Computed example of a mutant assay.
Amino acid sequence: MRRDVRNSKEAPEENDELELEGGDEEEEEKSSSGPRRYLTRSGAERMHKELLRLLNEERPKVTAEVSAAAAQGDRSENAEYIYGKKRLREIDRRIRFLQKRLDTATIVEPSEQTDTERVYFGATVTLEDEDGQKVTYQIVGSDEIDTAGGRISVESPIARALMRKKVGDTVEVIRPRGEIEYTLVRIRYA
């Protein structure tokens, strides 16, 4: 529970100590959760849509199925009831995960990047490998990875090597299949 310094008769120093020790658990989790998590605006919107779908469609549907299965009698041997409860736990776990991620993430709008000459979070980069083949990636948060869709994590070896590089710079990336050299051909912030 938080205490207001203005309404307290204790010295401010004591209140400051109490404020730090008695703070919300959520705030402690945010500060001790390690590195800051970033999401692009579009990634946050996708996660929010999934959250709303789970809350408004999936969970009510599964809850109704579990209720119907429970009404059939003996729950210990009722496969529909057991599976429904398991599915409900999975949905609830995913809802908690999405809520926590959306609450604690820093939302970044790539189009608002001021330094468009260098690679930063949210950039869409076009790379050319040693064989002259080009590939395009958008650097996104770890919760929005889609390699088939060209979105790679900011924590990936390629993204780490590209950070703060300019067009024309060459980077070496160590990957499981061996080293590869890429030349940065284009940077976009869309």
Score class of each variant (00 low, 15 high):
Gly73Pro: 00
Asp74Tyr: 05
Asp143Val: 07
Glu128Asn: 10
Ser31Tyr: 05
Ser67Leu: 15
Glu128Val: 14
Phe121Trp: 06
Glu27Ala: 14
Arg151Val: 08
Glu181Ala: 15
Leu20Phe: 13
Ser153Cys: 00
Ala159Thr: 07
Pro110Lys: 07
Arg89Lys: 15
Leu52Lys: 14
Val154Gly: 01
Asp4Thr: 15
Leu39Pro: 01
Gln72Ala: 04
Gln99Lys: 13
Val173Ser: 08
Arg160Cys: 04
Glu45Ile: 04
Glu144Phe: 03
Val66Leu: 09
Val185Thr: 10
Glu17Arg: 14
Asp146Leu: 08
Ser33Glu: 11
Met1Asn: 09
Leu98Asp: 02
Leu162Ile: 15
Lys49Ile: 14
Asp129Glu: 07
Thr170Pro: 01
Leu18Ala: 10
Glu19Phe: 12
Val167Cys: 02
Leu98Trp: 01
Thr116Phe: 01
Arg3Pro: 00
Ala79Val: 15
Arg2Ser: 14
Thr147Trp: 02
Glu25Asp: 08
Leu55Gly: 05
Ile158Ser: 02
Glu144Trp: 03
Ile180Phe: 05
Asn7Val: 11
Asp74Glu: 14
Arg6Tyr: 09
Lys30Met: 11
Arg6Cys: 10
Leu98Val: 10
Asn56Tyr: 12
Leu18Glu: 09
Glu29Gly: 07
Glu21Asp: 11
Arg46Pro: 05
Lys165Trp: 05
Glu45Pro: 04
Ala44Phe: 03
Pro35Glu: 12
Ile91Gly: 09
Lys61Trp: 09
Asp129Leu: 09
Tyr81Thr: 07
Val171Asn: 06
Glu128Met: 11
Glu144Cys: 08
Arg188Met: 14
Ala105Thr: 05
Ser33Met: 11
Val66His: 00
Thr136Gly: 07
Glu144Leu: 09
Gly34Ser: 15
Arg75Glu: 06
Glu65Val: 11
Arg118Val: 10
Glu144Gln: 09
Asn7Ala: 12
Gly132Ser: 06
Arg177Val: 13
Asp74Thr: 12
Arg46Trp: 05
Gly73Cys: 07
Glu179Thr: 14
Leu184Trp: 01
Arg186Lys: 15
Thr147Ala: 09
Arg93Trp: 06
Glu128His: 09
Val108Pro: 03
Val62His: 05
Ala44Arg: 00
Arg186Pro: 01
Ser142Phe: 02
Tyr38Lys: 10
Arg75His: 08
Ser33Pro: 01
Ser8Gly: 02
Arg118Tyr: 07
Gln138Ser: 06
Lys9His: 08
Met1Val: 12
Glu112Lys: 13
Tyr120Leu: 11
Asp103Tyr: 01
Ala79Glu: 15
Leu20Met: 14
Ile95Met: 02
Asn78Ser: 05
Ser111Met: 08
Glu14Gln: 09
Ala44Tyr: 01
Val108Lys: 00
Arg177Trp: 05
Gly178Asn: 02
Leu20Gln: 13
Tyr83Glu: 13
Gly178His: 02
Glu130His: 08
Arg2Cys: 13
Gln113Asn: 03
Arg75Gln: 12
Asp92Arg: 15
Glu28Leu: 10
Leu98Pro: 00
Val62Glu: 00
Gln138His: 06
Glu128Phe: 02
Leu98Gln: 06
Gly150Cys: 10
Val171Ser: 04
Val173Asn: 07
Ser33Cys: 12
Val154Arg: 04
Gly168His: 05
Gly23Tyr: 04
Arg101Lys: 15
Glu27Arg: 13
Gly122Ile: 03
Asp143Trp: 03
Arg46Leu: 10
Ala71Ser: 11
